[in-house]
């Protein structure tokens, strides 16, 4: 098959689309759904800018076919803030100064979300390990570590 109709849920909304089998999940999100928050940095799994959650797990959306997401729940940076309120991670990133150019930020937030789902009270070491696939060229990472710890101390979101 060269095209396929898929059903996916993205940030809680259901989509049904026919896509080429050679379309990556990243291209699907950015070009089909116009969710451009997820970034393309390398297309080779090396930078983490394209990280999204597929059924709760972080993956490089540049290395996954859109058709492989059929039936899955996708979560992207656009899904973090709800009803006009920032997610604790977003707030913490701002407060701790963990954002500079912001290009790595969406992927970083997704990896951080997966991390907090796994380790609600992570150590700095765990953060560095679980986020090792997200490259940031601006911040030097330290404030990102602090932001995630800060978020873990904030009230858990509902």
């Amino acid at each position: 098959m060269k095209t396929l109709t898929i059903q996916v849920t993205v940030n809680g909304e259901a989509f049904c689309k026919t896509v080429g089998v050679n379309m990556t999940l990243l291209e699907f999100l950015r070009e089909e759904l116009h969710l451009t928050g997820t970034k393309l940095g390398c297309n080779e799994g090396e930078c983490g800018a394209c990280t999204v959650l597929v059924d709760g797990k972080p993956v490089n959306s540049c290395l996954m076919l859109a058709v492989e997401a059929d039936g899955a729940e996708i979560f992207t940076v656009e899904g973090l803030a709800k009803d006009g309120t920032l997610h604790p991670l977003q707030e913490a990133f701002i407060e701790a100064g963990a954002v500079q150019c912001g290009f790595c930020t969406p992927g970083m937030l997704m990896s951080a979300k997966a991390l907090l789902d796994k380790y609600p009270k992570p150590t700095a070491q765990q953060i560095r390990k679980e986020l090792e696939g997200n490259i940031c060229r601006c911040t030097g990472y330290d404030r990102i570590v602090k932001a995630i710890i800060l978020a873990s101390e904030m009230n858990k979101e509902g």
Partner: peptide, 9 residues
């Protein structure tokens, strides 16, 4: 191996 994202897949 690689990163969490790579190991996940």
């Amino acid at each position: 191996v690689g990163s969490v994202q790579i190991r996940q897949r």
